[in-house]
Design a binder for these strands. Sequence first.
DNA 1: AAGTGAACCTGAAGGC
DNA 2: TGCCTTCAGGTTCACT
Length: 297
Amino acid sequence: MPELPEVETVRRGLQPAMEGARIAGVETRRPDLRFPLPERMADALTGQRIAALGRRAKYLLVELDNGAVLGCHLGMSGSFRIEDRHAAATPGAFHHARSKAAAHDHVVFHLDCADGGKREVVYNDPRRFGFMFLTSRAALDENPYLKDLGLEPTGNALSGTALSGLLAGRKAPLKAALLDQRAIAGLGNIYVCEALWRARLSPKRAAGTLVRKNGAPTERCGHLADAIRAVIADAIAAGGSSLRDYMHADGTLGYFQHSFAAYDREGEPCQHEDCDGMIRRIVQSGRSTFYCPACQR
DNA sequence: AAGTGAACCTGAAGGC
DNA sequence: TGCCTTCAGGTTCACT
């Protein structure tokens, strides 16, 4: 799935079509994704105007004028695409959007956009690990999916001091602790591997070892906080990573995967200039970890 | 309480 | 060619 940089890229891709648009109708082509779709979702959304498209961690938040909020999580394989109805209806037009496979198109939002055009925003998700829920702006803080989410790894909130508070006393491997959405919200398997490689920290090290006895962050804890913020910022700037058929709402591909230093690079030489180690793949709590045993300690 | 592993589901890729 | 196994960006739930 899309980790935070991919979700942010999707948000930016959908924003021009969705913000200010009126929802003319919603098709739900099956009753459930990972969980049942919200009761009467189409009724709740139809006729409403979209005030803003937001994001919290890996959740996309469609905020309506009436205060309702549709939350969307893309799971592992979820994606959105935009289809321009006007262009598709023009005789002789290039029907690129129409030729897309409709398999696994589960939800279609019909929009009357702010620019006067009619578009469809289509949610596609082969594995159906994604899910949607309805809440309201007033109830966001108590929503079960959102209320326990930790710090965003963007901006300045994630300092070394903040990170040490999140890791203090934890015996779980650093890899597992960073994947815990209640601590930092938005990191996934790829960016945790990349951040640990940049900070030269072993994914196997107990998380609490980055904190001094008095609770202060070690120097390396500060470096890790910096590495996390940097890798997330770099990935967002690159438009996310495109693995398999993952694609942006506008059909373009992110290119951050070309910048992976560790993830999916088993057997390749470590790219740190002063290191002659080799990237290795291990399994931690059932998921692949890629790291350099020579320089990540 | 915290940490680990299974389950959810489909498709792509590699081995034989 | 086809059949089989393994693996995939995440989260929740059940167990130790």
